[in-house]
């Protein structure tokens, strides 16, 4: 750590510290979970994940948490993506290709409406 030589230096450190704090506290309103078990990866979940991250990056979105989960026992429906918005119950989508990601992100994550045709009914 180099010494702080001025108030400006100090303010910069503060900004950086705040950023780190935000990383720690980031609890977004939307939580997107990608099934990343061996079955999911085999079915193309990595591409699904990349498409989600790409969507967030190109649209400069914030407050969205993207995590993975393991096999949930529906291997034939992989790649599986689950979306939970705030307090609402979690919605599970199956056969989520990068194209479907575009719709889920736009209509559900941003628009707030789940897309019936891709929902996995258990």
């Amino acid at each position: 750590m180099s010494a702080v030589k001025s108030l400006e230096d100090l303010k910069r450190i503060k900004e950086r510290a705040l950023e780190k704090k935000q990383v720690k506290a980031s609890s977004g309103s939307a939580h997107v979970i990608v099934g990343m078990g061996t079955c999911g990866i085999a079915a193309g979940a990595r591409d699904t994940m990349k498409a989600i991250l790409k969507y967030i990056e190109t649209n400069n979105l914030s407050g969205i948490i993207v995590t993975q989960t393991g096999c949930i026992g529906l291997c034939e429906r992989e790649p599986i993506v689950q979306v939970s918005m705030g307090e609402e119950p979690k919605i599970t989508y199956g056969k989520v290709t990068p194209d479907v990601v575009q719709r889920i992100m736009k209509e559900h994550v941003l628009g707030g409406k789940s897309i019936q045709e891709f929902i996995v009914k258990v």
Partner: peptide, 15 residues
Amino acid sequence: IEDYIAEDGYMALGK
């Protein structure tokens, strides 16, 4: 110390 600085720590000293 960064946690303290994030909460306006040492800003008073700077002033």
